[in-house]
Amino acid sequence: MKANRQEKVQYLKPWDCLSVLVPLLVLAILVPQSVWGERRLPSDSVYALSATVENEQGETLQWQDLRGQPHLVSMVYTRCRMSCPLIIHQGMSVQQRLLEEGKAVPRLLVISMDPVHDTPQVLAATMARYRLSPERATFLRPRDHQERTLAALLDIRFRPRDDGGFDHTNVWLLLDAEGRVVARTEKMTGAPDPSFVRQVEALMASHSSQGDY
């Protein structure tokens, strides 16, 4: 038996479409980029660790916030008067070598293994003593006793001594923008390690060619 009434076909009007599209557009703007598919970290990225750090300006950062550009990374403690100054000077020497050649320079990322003593004020004073600008270096102190976790992640060993100092690995690591360890050197005296400098140069050239520097 056929129905006597006919079903009406409804057509969407332009303003009906807008009522749907406008909320979606607002949602796209407000939702964090990570939800929409920010690039996942590589499985071997050091930034996969969830850690909180504080810089020389007293700003609290997440470890993952450092993602996005290459870094030269090491760990020191500011009371050190022997090996730590050598470490810092060696990192500065790598930067200087690249600057002399007109090359792009990675920022130094210097992490304290003694965060109880190395307050932001102490870190800022240390940067000033070495005449390091924020464009060239960042000094960090781990929060929540995470200095050993970060050291293990970077394969840097340290242990406290009875005199209040630390025995530790003297090393610079080269991290790419995604936090992967590209190169490592433990040469801290004399001219910069030529092989390490070339690896830094190659990484910076690749980073620049991608338009990220």
Rank of each mutant, 00 (worst) to 15 (best):
L154C: 02
L174T: 04
Q57H: 10
S83W: 00
Q95L: 08
M82R: 13
A202D: 14
E186Q: 06
A152W: 13
W15C: 11
A202Y: 00
H71I: 01
A124S: 14
E178R: 09
L21P: 13
S195N: 11
H145I: 07
P192K: 04
E147P: 01
W63P: 01
K8P: 02
R184F: 10
Y11S: 03
Q64P: 01
L109A: 05
Q57F: 09
L173W: 06
V200L: 04
H71M: 10
D16H: 15
L18H: 02
H168V: 03
P106W: 03
L203S: 01
D65Y: 01
T78H: 05
D114Q: 07
A205L: 10
V53M: 12
G211M: 07
L154R: 03
V76H: 00
L98Y: 02
R184S: 14
V110Y: 00
P70V: 10
V35F: 15
C17P: 00
P194H: 11
G37N: 09
E201D: 15
A104M: 07
N55F: 08
H207Q: 06
L41A: 13
F139V: 12
G102D: 11
L61C: 06
T185R: 04
D163E: 14
S208D: 03
K13I: 06
S50Q: 15
E186D: 15
L66W: 15
F158E: 01
T119E: 07
G164W: 07
L132N: 04
Q210G: 14
L153Q: 11
T78G: 10
V200E: 02
A51N: 05
V9N: 03
A137Y: 08
T119W: 05
T149Y: 04
H168N: 09
E7G: 10
R79A: 08
L108S: 10
V76M: 08
G165L: 11
L203K: 10
K187L: 12
L98I: 02
W63H: 01
E56A: 14
I111S: 03
R97I: 04
K13S: 13
W36D: 05
P106C: 07
A152E: 13
Q90E: 08
L173A: 03
P192T: 06
D118M: 07
R198F: 00
D114I: 03
